[in-house]
Design a protein around this nucleic acid. Structure first.
Lengths: 252, 252
DNA sequence: TTCTTCTGCGTATGCCTTACGCATTACTGT
DNA sequence: ACAGTAATGCGTAAGGCATACGCAGAAGAA
């Protein structure tokens, strides 16, 4: 475990990374830098998946020895955090209150989703706690700003934010699994779906699973739907729920 | 990768596990059984977490050699699947349509949540595709039955089910992380929350993050709320959204 | 009885993270 | 200018992991 350093409760290399702490100026000039390490790791993850990111391979990619990396990173988990931070962008453009909370939240969700889609390895990082990083603060800030005029309490706002971001993550994970299955078998989306349906059918007994049988017979499973369909459906549902809450709060 | 065997598209050991295939009756009597292996693995996971589950340790616990396990399990991933299946119960009691879809879905979600809470290691298993197992079919069956009379299409029903179960999983994961943080530091829930809040505060700049500052100053973060609060809030939101959809479908 | 097939297991390979210590370098205070 | 000190890169190695392969023996099938 990476021991925490200051009273910030953050591991040393992370505190260094986002400027809460400076690298000392004593010894030999570092021939390496956190940025280069993280960039290399991200490149590797993008090309071959998170599984390909090992200290050894990152080091090899940089032309240094494995153990050199540990002068910059306390443990591999910290590297993961830094990779996330490196790849996460900041919400696009400033927030215009005229947009309205619903469109704002939808955009907020869509942007986060895109990050996952473009960096599928992000979803494979085992999360080890609530996010504490500059970028995550910016995203929370944006979320709170979007909900500022809704009349929700601060606690409710943060709950809504966590609900929506949780949904985004979950949906992206599901899609990433389908994508992984496709990549592995080399089959088209439709074929993957059909294969999945076939698996379910084998395990489904018309007698004991009438609803399942009805569902499988409906043919919904026989073709992959629009890539955004599931996301749009789920997000609309969640936002409808949020709308109901806001409605309730606005006139009791 | 575990190669698929029949035309079911299932790995061999899984097909064996749920009776789609029988163990051959030729050679020496097996001194081991899939059940014993899986039980041992589950016990280990429950006691020391999923990280403690290695082929070596499972074998040691059973008093056999590591490689013996591979006569029963094609790969570790398959063991994971079997562990999930072993621990997953079946929905409690028969479905009474008089319950109504909302209460039914809420109970469905609560039961699944309890499974996660009682077997936190479940959440650490990397999911590698949509669930194909007898138990998962039973849960889907129940979900579809609950939504049978709502007037939703089959596609919408399954989308709602995935939305809700995704939410349950996500929320459980979050709670499990907090629990893990508590276990690691030995701090009380409130203390963990305060530590988290402190981390955020360090990264928050009142100028650039006014909404965050307002939020942190509101004091919501300074004490852990009821363990069920977040779950109840999110579930209510989601179900409100589903209700809106059903409403819309029932009278266009 | 002989053949086939399946068992348990020893050995070995090739990964992985990371603890530790050594020689080297460059800044700091005198 | 010159110690002293601290940080660098890196070699070595320990301990863990999943799992490929092959062999000796057991038990049912012929």
């Amino acid at each position: 475990m990476a021991q925490v350093d200051d009273d910030t409760g953050l591991p040393a290399s992370l505190a260094t990374a986002w400027g809460l702490r400076e690298r000392p100026s004593k010894g030999p000039k570092p021939g390496l830098s956190l940025d280069r390490i993280v960039d290399q790791a991200v490149e590797l993850a993008a090309a071959e998946g998170l599984g390909a990111v090992s200290m050894g391979r990152v080091a090899k990619g940089l032309g240094v020895s494995t153990m050199s990396l540990y002068r910059y990173v306390g443990a591999k988990d910290e590297l993961y955090v830094l990779m996330q931070e490196a790849v996460y962008p900041v919400p696009s453009g400033p927030w215009d209150p005229a947009t309205g909370w619903r469109a704002g939240l939808a955009q907020w969700a869509a942007e986060q989703r895109r990050i996952f889609q473009e960096n599928l390895w992000l979803l494979r990082i085992p999360i080890s706690g609530p996010p504490v990083s500059p970028k995550s603060v910016v995203w929370m800030e944006r979320g709170l700003a979007v909900l500022a005029d809704t009349g929700l309490s601060e606690g409710e706002k943060i709950s809504v934010i966590m609900l929506v971001s949780g949904f985004v993550r979950q949906e992206a994970l599901l899609m990433s699994d389908v994508a992984a299955a496709m990549a592995e078998t080399g089959l088209a989306p439709d074929a993957v779906m059909r294969r999945y349906a076939r698996g379910l059918r084998v395990l489904t007994d018309p007698e004991r699973h009438p609803a399942m049988t009805r569902f499988l017979d409906s043919g919904v499973m026989d073709e992959a739907d629009e890539p955004d369909a599931e996301f749009d459906f789920g997000l609309a549902c969640v936002l409808d729920g949020v709308a109901a809450l806001i409605e309730r709060r606005s006139r009791p």
